[in-house]
Amino acid sequence: MAGTGKAHLRRSDSVVLSVEDLVVEYRLKGSGDRVHAVSGISLDVLAGETLGLVGESGCGKSTTARAVLGLPRPTSGSVRFDDVEVTTLSEREMRRFRPKAQMVFQDPIASLNPRRTVEDVVAEPSRIVASGTRAERREKVRTVLREVGLDPDVMGSRRARQLSGGQCQRLSIARALVLDPDVLICDEPVSALDVSVQAQVLNLLGDLSQKRRLSMLFISHDLAVVKNVSDRVIVMYLGKICETARPDPLYARPAHPYTAGLLGAIPVPDPGIDPRGRRTVQGEPPSPINPPSGCRFRTRCPFAQKICADEEPEIREIDDNHYVACHFPLTHAAAA
């Protein structure tokens, strides 16, 4: 849409996570102004499905992901896990839910206690839940560490602050996986990994979603990674959804002007192509405190007309399972 609507939501028994009209606003100290971080996001994730979430830096991806787990509590809107509304749960009741839904945070180093050993960091969640014997728990910890490519014999006794960036990131993935969650919320989970370790981790997550029907909300700026792991992708801009579709058609035929600009800026691994001066989204990002009226992308959109300032576009289906919120979506008739 940068617009509103829920046309893209599905009615299915296998919906595991359902978010409707999520709004998160941060109050700024002093001025009383509010940051409109997330302004009416709706999404659903089926069992075993991976939903990719992409968009401009600062558009509210992390806020969406965290609000799903109640950190912070949303300003309004509904979040349901298996049909249980969690926004109204007390802190204690919410904790009961946490083992089912785990999160890998965006800043891996900042989110880990730097003085704990690697094995302790991963063991902590299962100690809190206290499932199985000590020996079983330890074995599970070591297995998960191996799965993310950290040798427990070499790394197990290290402290978190003695790890490289990518090792920290894998440590936080291991910690999130140790309790066998049903839903995994991954905020930039592979950004610090070289492509070969990244391949290993992504293959592992793919296996878990197939074998264990693990559902994932997967945030990343790496659009090739998102295409690879996702069953569906949502593109966000300034707190709103622009477009959502399955990855292959979305990447082949983006309908929203912002999506097209984003895809056009992906760096290609070919030294023969000079990427300089090829900005595909022009202009300055607008203020999240006073977002533009109508379509939030209009101040930078090459196709904007008067209606774009007056009316907020609603999400609608333009092709099978392909939804866009734009008054003048791009068509690909010529290209097809």
Binding site: G149, K227, R246
Partner: peptide, 27 residues
């Protein structure tokens, strides 16, 4: 070469299995 081969490609369809390098890095 292994590194370049593990890169996820935009030209590949979604869910293409990625090439990981088996084994652990040196201690």
């Amino acid at each position: 070469r292994a590194l370049l081969a593990s890169m996820p490609r935009l030209t590949a369809p979604s869910h293409t299995r990625l090439r990981a390098t088996p084994g652990a890095p040196p201690d």
